[in-house]
Simulated assay, not measured.
Amino acid sequence: MSALTELRSLGDSKGNSKGKGGRKGRIRHRDNGAGYLFLSPWFLGLLAITIGPMIASLVLSFTKYNLLQPATFTGLDNFTRMLSDDRLHQALTVTFVYVFVSVPLQLALALALALVLDRGVRGLAFYRSVFYLPSLLGTSVAIAVLWARVFGADGIFNQFLNVFGIEGKGWISSPDTALGTLIILNVWTFGAPMVIFLAGLRQIPTMYYEAAEVDGASRWRKFRSITIPLLTPIIFFNLVLQIIHAFQSFTQAFIVSGGTGGPADSTLFYTLYLYDRGFANFDMGYASAMAWVLLVIVGIFTAVNFWASKYWVFYDD
């Protein structure tokens, strides 16, 4: 009888554990359902605003479509046309120069100011906000209009040069300097990478600098052997982010050039030419093909950065 009682008690305990497990499973399932319910607006936005248009543009890239008539399939004609499109080649050249010049200068300035602010400047929160403000306004139409007025023939910059007896010119209307003004504008919006650099500098342990001081290391030696190696993950992050952002630049060139690409197409960014083909010439099939080429270009640059990072990015762990 005792053995039978033990078997019954064992069975009851298993049944209770299964019941508890079932209740836990139902509770977990209910919690997951609530989570998916709250995430559903984001999933709908992802499908309707991101994935759906991407698939549509991929399909349109193989068609001839002018927004007014049904699209007709043309195969790879849009992509082969790019090989003989001189304005597209000019747009690529302008965009590459803009990216390769403005991004390093922007990151160098952001790092330099982050190093200054990291030394305990009084009113750090104020300076951080002031330096970050151009990043919020740099891509706006208002700042682009202001920039066109600053570097115009009668702009503030020429008035400043006149004080020293230097005769200015229309910096934006000149094909030799128009792109340079946009590069300066992008460098001026250094606030976002500066804040990220500043956060990275605050994470470097002070014991490394203290040990270097004991060894008699100079300030430059500490910067080269401690700050830069430990900051390479932040540099890598800012580099990838700013390259992608630079390839997507549009508003500045559109406002400054009036949507034409500037004198001799000197400010014809790739995105500006894409807009011109799609919405000014109603060649939406060609514009869609250009969009996917841009996606591939950005993807290649990002992949190369990730591949090269293993040779120069140092992780403390």
Rank of each mutant, 00 (worst) to 15 (best):
V150F: 10
G35D: 02
L201T: 03
G120E: 10
V97F: 08
M82G: 01
S174K: 11
A264E: 14
E167H: 15
V116G: 13
N238M: 06
F73Y: 12
E167Y: 12
L295P: 01
M284C: 02
R28I: 14
P205G: 05
V150P: 07
I243K: 08
L179A: 11
T267Q: 03
V214G: 00
G138A: 10
T206H: 08
D85E: 05
S40H: 09
G259I: 10
V97G: 05
L113A: 07
V94E: 06
L274N: 11
L231I: 00
Y209D: 01
N186P: 00
V240Y: 09
L124C: 02
R224W: 13
I228W: 08
W307E: 06
N66V: 01
G123I: 14
S288G: 02
A287Y: 08
L88K: 04
T63K: 13
Q90D: 03
P104N: 10
R219T: 09
A212I: 01
L76A: 10
I204H: 08
I156Q: 11
L137M: 15
G52L: 03
M290H: 01
S288Y: 05
I183E: 04
F254E: 05
G258W: 10
F151S: 09
G168N: 12
S174A: 13
F160S: 11
L295Y: 07
L295D: 02
L294F: 09
I183V: 14
T50K: 14
K24M: 13
A211Q: 10
L137E: 09
P175Q: 07
G155F: 15
T260W: 09
G22C: 12
A148I: 04
I228G: 00
F190D: 00
L182F: 08
A125I: 12
Q252H: 11
I244S: 15
Y273C: 03
T63A: 11
F237P: 00
V296M: 08
A212P: 02
G45I: 04
I184E: 00
L60T: 04
L117K: 14
Y98A: 05
L83G: 00
F96A: 15
E210P: 01
L107F: 07
L83Y: 06
R224N: 06
D77R: 13
T181L: 06
S249Q: 14
G180H: 11
L58G: 05
G261H: 09
L68F: 12
Y98L: 13
G216K: 10
V145L: 15
G180L: 09
T63L: 02
M54C: 10
F164W: 15
A246E: 03
Q242H: 02
P53R: 13
F301G: 03
T72M: 01
Q106E: 15
L295E: 02
F62C: 02
L230G: 00
N16H: 14
F236M: 03
G11N: 15
L274K: 09
F100M: 14
L185R: 12
M290R: 04
A3V: 15
S61A: 07
P233A: 02
Y132T: 04
L182A: 08
L179T: 11
A192W: 08
I244P: 01
T5G: 12
L67C: 03
A114P: 14
S17F: 14
I184M: 13
F236R: 07
M284E: 04
R119D: 05
N186D: 07
G170S: 14
F100D: 03
I255W: 03
A217K: 11
D77P: 00
A199L: 02
G52N: 03
T50C: 11
